[in-house]
Amino acid sequence: MNKIKYFLVLSIVVLTACGDGTGTGAQGNANASTGTGGSMARFSIVDNMLYAISENNIQLVNIEEPESPILWDKINVGFGIETLFTYDKYLFIGSQSGVFIYDYSNPELPEYISEFTHARSCDPVVVEGNFAFVTLRSNSRCFGNSNQLDILDISDIQHPHLVKTYPMHEPYGLGIVDEKLFICDGDEGLKVFDVSDKESIELIEQQVDVSCYDVIPTTSKLIVSSSSGIPQYNHQGNELITLSEIPVGLND
């Protein structure tokens, strides 16, 4: 009986994944049975595989039997890998030396495709359409001295190339939906950019008082993890309208 159930779940997963050829802009929600993480995530589930960053490796964990997972392969990616982002059939790995791109058409055996290297720093990456958005941050834990947003053209996935670099203050997590880019930029708060023109992105909104760490945008809403709590916004139109905020330090 259980086997049949898993088979059904699996086929739904496969079908929804297939129907989602263009990707959805947010991580991991290519199928309904998994959730959606932010850009800082180090865990990601693809089909029956859990990818988990462990030091310089990605640990693959087979979760076909959800409640008794099996350690699978370990892929050595490179020095200081920090974040995982899945888009289309590609795995984008943010590391201290650049972005690595793997093809996970076969989730059990992700294959190295290409990489884009840069100065040493910490950098989450998100992807929409033919472009990857990478923030580089330098502080006490992350080496280097660059704080910036890099926009990469990945239409040729074998050869990602830099479109343009924009200076930032101290960027942490970021998210993109419908060419609207949300960046947690340290002391300068939460920023919203219109990135329809990659050569000249436009700051359309800034919430200075939100010291945010990561964001999860959906088509209309934005969930933010900040040091003061978890605010949620409606971002349709050109401004952020606060829906609610779960504050820290208070019982519900």
């Binding site: 959730g35 959606t36 760490y213 990561d214 933010v224 040091s227 978890i230 330090g249 208070l250 019982n251």
Partner: peptide, 14 residues
């Protein structure tokens, strides 16, 4: 009955 603190990563499920 626990108060939110040290907020880190967020995850949406259903």
């Amino acid at each position: 009955d626990k108060a939110l603190s040290n907020t880190g990563k967020i995850y949406v499920y259903k």
